[in-house]
């Protein structure tokens, strides 16, 4: 029995040491990897399509005043599905390759973006310019806050 056990040990030794040197040496993910979201503030025009499709309700939208729409990406709960990147008509959202996102402060995991919006001449509220995504807006806007909670 002891001998067969020693043989097992030898089988194990055959593979040799495979430990990767990360984190002392960088280890890049594969090219298709979906990492942390990045938002290009210059491209975003605040349509809110991303917020609409996000399964985790990461993207909160609030119109603060007549000219400003705030998009807050609470990406600490992001599921990295990449839907926002897919639907963004302006390619403002991009899933980067960055995975080294660990932090000691929760506020590091927030992106806040303020977009200047054109107000509606009639009602005075701001509105997003019409986009091909209007169809999607019809359905299932998930309320972001604490909703019906007591």
């Amino acid at each position: 029995m002891l001998l067969s056990k020693l043989r097992e040990a030898l089988i194990c030794l055959k593979a040799g040491r495979v430990t990767l040197p990360y984190p002392s040496a960088p280890h890049d993910p594969s090219p298709r990897f979906r990492g942390k979201i990045t938002v290009d503030p210059d491209r975003c025009f605040g349509c809110g399509g991303c917020a609409n499709v996000c399964p985790a309700g990461v993207i909160l939208i609030h119109d603060t005043d007549q000219h400003t729409r705030v998009l807050e990406f609470q990406w600490r709960r992001c599921t990295y599905c990449g839907r926002c990147e897919e639907v963004c008509p302006e390619q403002a959202i991009h899933m980067s390759q960055q995975f080294e996102t660990a932090t000691d402060r929760p506020e590091d995991l927030v992106i806040r973006l303020e977009v200047f919006m054109g107000p509606c001449q009639r009602c005075g509220r701001c509105f997003p310019p019409p986009t091909p995504l209007d169809r999607m807006m019809v359905s299932g806007f998930r309320s972001g806050g604490n909703g019906g909670r007591q």
Binding site: P31, R32, Y80, M95
Partner: peptide, 12 residues
């Protein structure tokens, strides 16, 4: 699987 789907699990 990461190379195929972009994520090691929950491929999306």
């Amino acid at each position: 699987t990461e190379e195929i789907s972009g994520n090691r699990k929950t491929y999306g």
